[in-house]
Amino acid sequence: MTGLYIRWGIFVLLAIILSMLVVRHYEAQLATVSPSDLILSPSTGSFRVQGMVKSGTLKGDVEQGAVQFELVDDAAAIRVQYHGPPPENLRELKTVVMIGTWDATARVFRAHEIALVSNYGFVASAYLLTFIPIGVFLFSMSRKVVVLMQAIKDSKLYEPEG
């Protein structure tokens, strides 16, 4: 039984280290601000803004990678100018994350990169809902095998065969 616990202890420890690595890897990417946060912030600097492309505001040449549009949330709207590689997935009424700098004086967000909305919640729940049930199931099975073996020996029912 001790051997079983040691093996599982090592495995759980490795799994915890791995999940911490994953969380650290994505921490920076999870931090986004909304357009209404950005309007209130007086500071000029680089941000990741998440919002929806307002309908009827997308102008410019998507193929060339030079477009402007309004990014909105429930309360506010900001003007965005994008220069960069051709955006593959940009269209109106779509939620996107824009990476770039906020020009507080001109009140325009100059973006150089577009990230898709990162649905990390879905990804994390899919992985957890896979590995936790399998782990619990396998652990209880392995434990029961050891218990059964012990029970067979203890009850003196065991007769070596052959």
């Binding site: 307002k54 309908s55 009827g56 269209r91 109106e92 009424l93």
Partner: peptide, 10 residues
Amino acid sequence: VHTHSEPVGL
């Protein structure tokens, strides 16, 4: 695809 905002739709 043509979107409109009042009400939101396409």
